[in-house]
Design a protein around this nucleic acid. Sequence first.
DNA 1: CTTGCATACCTAGATTGTCTTGGTATGCTT
DNA 2: AAGCATACCAAGACAATCTAGGTATGCAAG
Lengths: 127, 127
Amino acid sequence: MARSTADGGPEFLSGTLEMLILRTLEAEELHGYGIARAIEAASGARLSIEEGSLYPALHRLEKRGDVRPEWKVSPTNRRARYYSLTQQGKKHLKKTTTAWLDVSAAVNRVLGLVPANQPTLGRAEAT
Amino acid sequence: MARSTADGGPEFLSGTLEMLILRTLEAEELHGYGIARAIEAASGARLSIEEGSLYPALHRLEKRGDVRPEWKVSPTNRRARYYSLTQQGKKHLKKTTTAWLDVSAAVNRVLGLVPANQPTLGRAEAT
DNA sequence: CTTGCATACCTAGATTGTCTTGGTATGCTT
DNA sequence: AAGCATACCAAGACAATCTAGGTATGCAAG
């Protein structure tokens, strides 16, 4: 998906790209190139979106019916394929986000980093 | 890696498995089967570790020098391959954990779940 | 004693998402 | 006219996971 801008390799987060795309489109209708820039900006330049991952992901989402494409002219006066979220896409985003929070919280729990007040099977953590 | 116990598919977190293994071994020396059970327990039964992912991951870590294996007899009286963390493994765990926190925080920022431009782990952000 | 189950290990092959690399094209700016 | 940012796309390599098998043992139940 996204790689950290820090290290050189693909790290973590296979599958997050689609979620991030959907989330970005929830905020505003955008074309692929713009989505990539928007995600990078929103991440505080910590993620970089490769086009070789981006476009296949967009086509998957389109085929799945989560986004709807439309050719338009961008503010820079170029032909660009603008994507908008479908109802299904919105639902999918909500579901996926919940799953992400759930799983990433589970990972943090295993790492022993749980930000307190999370009741986890009576596993008390020593300070 | 781990799949959420909730949904049926491999979701998120490619690459997290190795980190979770290392973290588990930091707590105690363990064999593969036990590692899987330990991670599942620590996650509050939210993750499930597939053996087809687990053993290849252990062998990667071993080849990389992050863990050291040793045949022993388990409390259940069976031959079992116990793994312990090497110094390199400890270092790797620390590095990987930082990367995970960094990237997952970035994802949350894109999702809009975290106020933008918040310093993560002391990594200051210019404004 | 034999059936069944949990423990414990392993691999081959399919699948999937990402990355690498290359390509096309256009609109500005210099 | 050259160079750059914008904007799109695909083929093939690569890496981690999952599927689906397999082996073997200790123990408890019948």
